[in-house]
Nucleic acid binder design. Structure first.
Lengths: 269, 269
DNA sequence: TTGCTCCTCACGTCACGTGAGGTGGC
DNA sequence: TTGCTCCTCACGTCACGTGAGGTGGC
C-alpha cells in the first residue's frame, strides 16, 4: 500500500524545506508522485525519500541542479560515478585555488610593494604551432593548463586579447616556436606577430601575476608608451617544468610604441 | 604627478573586468578617484591599484563584498587580521562540511538501505538548564555546537520545532537535566515537557541523521501514529564525548499518539 | 572624422527565501 | 467550524554578466 505524504510530511522526513521542494518540482528535479489537479496539492511517496536524500547530498557538495539531474538520470552506477568524479575533481581544483588564494593574499599583505625591471624588446614574427580559443575568463584557467600540456616541446608563449580582461571574454593563443607545416595534435601552424614590447619577469604563481601586470602597466603609463594589441606571456619556467608554482618564471610583455622613448627602467609599486 | 587611469586601463592592470569595476563603484567598494560630472567617465589612480589587487584576493577567497569593505576599512593590521581570521575559520568549516558530505554520499551509495529499531517511550516532564534560540537552518549548526559546549555536565538533549525543517526557521532548545534554580552561564532553568515518543538510535555523523529521520517518519506514517510537536534528540555519545563523528550515537525521538497502538517495531528503508 | 571607449538602464543568472493573499483539508 | 496546511504569484538575494541604445574622447 502506497502512502501519500504531504509536502509537509515529506519535508520533515527529508529535512528539505517546503520552499525547496516546490522549487525542485518547478525545475523538474524531484516531481511529486501525484499532484491533485483541483487543489494543486503535492503528494510524495515513501519510495521518493531515497531520491530526496540523495539530492540533498549532491547539493551539499555544491553540485549544480542540472548536474544533479544528470546524475539521477544516469543509466547505471558506472556512468553515475563518472559524473560524480568530474564534480569531485572540480571540488579538488577549487580547494587548490582557495589555498593558492590564501598564499597570494599573505604575500600581498607581507610584501606590499614589488620592484620590477623592465626591458624593451623588439621581436620579429616567427612560425609556431598554436592552439587558439575564444574563452571567457572563467574557463581560461583550465584551457590554459590543458593546452600547455598538449603542445609539442619548446618554450610556450601566449597571446591574450585585452577583452579577456576588460570584457571577461576574448581570444587566447598558446604557441610553441616551430617550422612545422602540418598540425601536431590539436595545434596548428600559426605566425606569432612581430611587436615592440615592454617586458618584466614575474616570479611565482600565476595567481599573483596581476601584481606584475599592475606594475608594468604603471611603468608604461608614466612614460606614455602605451600601444594597442594583445599582451604576451612567455613561460620560461612553468607548468611543463615543475608543479612548484613558486619556481615559475613568466615574462610578461606589454605592447608599447617604441618610437617615443627607448630607455629601459625599473619601477617600484 | 597623478596619472588618471580610465576604467579600461585600470581593468587591464588589475584584471578586474570593466563591469566588475562599475559594480564595485555602485556598491561603494572601490570608488574611482574622480568621476567626470559631465560625461560620467570614471578615473582611477595608480595608488588605487593596491586596493584593487587586495579586493581581488579577498573575493577569490569567497569573502562577501560587505566583509571586504570591513576589512579595507579596518583601522590597523591587527583588527584587519582578526576579520580575516574569522573568514578563514569559515573556509575551514566549509571544507570540513564538504569532506563530511563526501563521506555521507559514499555511505548512501554503498549502503542504500538502513534498518532501524523503534522503541515507544513515555517521558515525564523534567527540570533542566537550557539554551533556547529561534534560528534559521543555516545558523543552526554553529549554534548547536557552541551551545552544547556551553551547557553544564550531563546528557544533552534537544527540541526542534517542525518549522526549522519545513520553513527553514524555528525554535531550537538544547538542555541538560538539572534541578538548578539559577542560570548557569547563558543556560537558564527550563522544563522539558512530557511526551510520548517513537525513538530510534542514529549512529554516526549528524549529517546523516536525515536517513534515520526518514526511516522513523516512514515507520510512524505506516502505523498512523503521527502527533504534533517538536522532535527531540538525545546525544548519548556526541560532540562532548568525542570528535570522531562515526562514534556518535543520537536518539531521535518523534512525537506519537500512543493511544492508537503501542507496539514497538523495526523498519528497513 | 572615424571608430573605439565609455556611459546608463533593464534584465538575466543561480538556488532558493520572503512575504502577500487566498483556498483547501481534517 | 476553526485554524492549520497548502497553494500561487511576485519580488528579493548575491555578485556580477549580457545586451541595447546612446554619447564622449582621441
Amino acid at each position: 500500500m502506497v502512502q501519500a505524504l504531504t509536502i509537509g510530511d515529506f519535508s520533515r522526513m527529508t529535512h528539505l524545506s517546503v520552499k525547496t521542494l516546490r522549487y525542485y518540482h518547478r525545475v523538474g528535479l524531484l516531481e511529486p508522485a501525484d499532484v491533485n489537479a483541483a487543489t494543486g496539492y503535492r503528494y510524495y511517496t515513501v519510495g521518493q525519500l531515497q531520491t530526496a536524500l540523495a539530492i540533498r547530498r549532491y547539493r551539499d557538495l555544491g553540485m549544480p541542479v542540472d548536474d544533479v539531474r544528470s546524475v539521477l538520470a544516469a543509466p547505471d552506477p558506472a556512468s553515475r560515478d563518472a559524473l560524480l568524479a568530474v564534480h569531485l575533481d572540480r571540488l579538488q581544483a577549487q580547494l587548490a585555488e582557495t589555498e593558492a588564494a590564501v598564499a597570494s593574499l599573505r604575500d600581498l599583505l607581507t610584501r606590499p610593494s614589488i620592484t620590477i625591471d623592465v626591458e624593451h624588446r623588439r621581436v620579429e614574427a616567427v612560425a609556431a604551432l598554436a592552439m587558439t580559443k575564444t574563452v571567457d575568463s572563467q574557463s581560461l584557467g583550465p584551457w590554459w593548463r590543458a593546452a600547455q600540456l598538449e603542445l609539442p616541446a619548446g618554450t610556450v608563449g601566449g597571446l591574450f586579447d585585452d577583452e579577456l580582461f576588460t570584457q571577461e571574454r576574448g581570444d587566447a593563443v598558446l604557441f610553441v616556436r616551430s617550422d612545422a607545416a602540418e598540425p601536431a595534435g590539436r595545434a596548428t601552424p600559426f605566425v606569432v606577430p612581430a611587436g615592440e614590447l615592454a617586458v618584466a619577469v614575474h616570479q611565482g604563481s600565476h595567481q599573483d601575476a596581476d601584481r606584475t601586470y599592475a606594475a608594468l602597466g604603471s611603468y608604461i603609463l608614466e612614460r606614455g608608451l602605451g600601444a594597442p594589441g594583445p599582451v604576451r606571456e612567455y613561460y620560461l619556467v612553468g607548468l611543463r617544468e615543475t608543479a612548484d608554482q613558486a619556481r615559475w618564471r613568466t615574462e610578461i610583455c606589454w605592447p608599447i610604441d617604441i618610437s617615443r622613448k627607448a630607455d629601459t627602467g625599473r619601477l617600484e609599486l
